[in-house]
Design a protein around this nucleic acid. Sequence first.
DNA 1: TTGCATGTTCCGGA
DNA 2: GTCCGGAACATGCA
Length: 284
Amino acid sequence: MTGPLAWFARRGPVGKPRIVPELPDVESFRQVFAAHAVKRPISGVDVLDAGVLRDVTADRLSRTLPGQRFSEPRRHGKWLIAPVGSHAVILHFGMTGSLYWTGPGEQPHRHDRVIFAFPDGELRYRDMRKLQGLRLVDSPRGVDDVLADVGPDATEVSRERLRELLDGRRKQVKAALTDQSIMAGIGNLLADEILWRARIHPRTSCVHLGRDELARLDAAMGRVLRQSIKAGRVPVTKSWLTGRRDDPSGSCPRCGTLLAHDRTGGRTTTWCPHCQPDEPVQPR
DNA sequence: TTGCATGTTCCGGA
DNA sequence: GTCCGGAACATGCA
């Protein structure tokens, strides 16, 4: 077998899906953080691997935080911001990060990189690949600096705003959706899911999106985000594209057509050739 | 042993 | 200026 499907087939049977954090996952991390780590005194910070620290040393982190209390964390796109006194801890989870709560003193997982200890348990930042990491900045200025090039959170983008954000861009619509400087929170998986629901080919240039396409895009984005946030992740079910994309013989949940796969920018793109025909359509 | 992985950033070239 | 592809980052897996 040659062509775009070759690498796909080589992967063999469907492996267990790896959870790469996108907006809904980070939202669930925020909820874990808010439920356990807010307004309680931080008793200690244990940096098990300083390789995840960005612009801060292990020493400074573990000298600054103990005795302080986090206030309510907020999420912006795939970033999690946790104010603490005059500072803020900013977390990004890259492709393999997560955040979870354990009882006090449990054996660390080997990918636990930083542990925030509290009287009744521990908040743990786990990340296998260390592609991103954790910062300590002055708040709010340092937060603004880190998020300076990040667009509005995808859950807060209205249809009109979406039109403005994509207006006049020649960029492919999938590249635009996953461009965090245009709009924050949508990753490869969500973008494919949204475009599939909106019946828009991922390579469609934004300038070719008509009023109808934009309306469908907005509706699909809202629906996919709401349902994913509710589920705490992008649902991997048979009625979602996400549930089929890892299967080389996967078919469109809507029409049964064999799904198409390709790679752009080093990322896999999955779409239905029937529901998402190549470049449309009416000019705007 | 090799190539791939759902994120981000940087660089060169069109 | 805009856009794209490729590489890099670090690690595990098939």
